[in-house]
Amino acid sequence: MGKDVKSPCVSLCHLKHEICTGCGRSRSEIKEWKGMKHKEQKATVERAAVRLKEFRRKERKH
């Protein structure tokens, strides 16, 4: 299979409502990352990017 999926972790870990404000992953996604298959990791990265974008959009409004 292709290359490993790079973790979205940016070492700025702070959970807000069970979502990391640094990478956008949920607490469970962070815990399960190493055991995930390639497709699961890729989907997680995509979901995390959407969450992070939404989180930052909301933060700018405040």
Rank of each mutant, 00 (worst) to 15 (best):
M1K: 09
M1I: 08
M1Y: 08
G2N: 12
G2C: 10
G2Q: 12
G2K: 14
K3T: 15
K3C: 13
K3E: 14
D4W: 03
D4G: 07
K6Q: 14
S7V: 05
C9Y: 06
C9E: 09
V10G: 05
V10H: 12
S11P: 11
S11H: 10
C13L: 03
C13H: 01
L15N: 05
L15C: 04
K16D: 11
E18S: 00
C20G: 01
C20S: 03
C20F: 00
T21K: 05
T21G: 01
T21S: 05
T21F: 03
T21P: 02
G22I: 04
R25Y: 00
R25G: 01
S26V: 04
R27N: 06
R27S: 06
E29P: 03
I30Y: 01
E32S: 15
W33M: 07
K34E: 08
G35W: 05
K37F: 08
K37I: 06
K37G: 10
Q41H: 08
K42L: 12
V45I: 11
V45D: 10
E46K: 05
E46F: 00
R47P: 00
R47C: 03
A48K: 12
A49S: 11
R51N: 10
L52I: 02
E54V: 07
E54Y: 02
F55P: 00
F55C: 00
R56D: 02
R57T: 13
K58A: 11
K58Q: 15
E59Y: 04
E59R: 14
R60A: 10
R60E: 07
H62V: 10
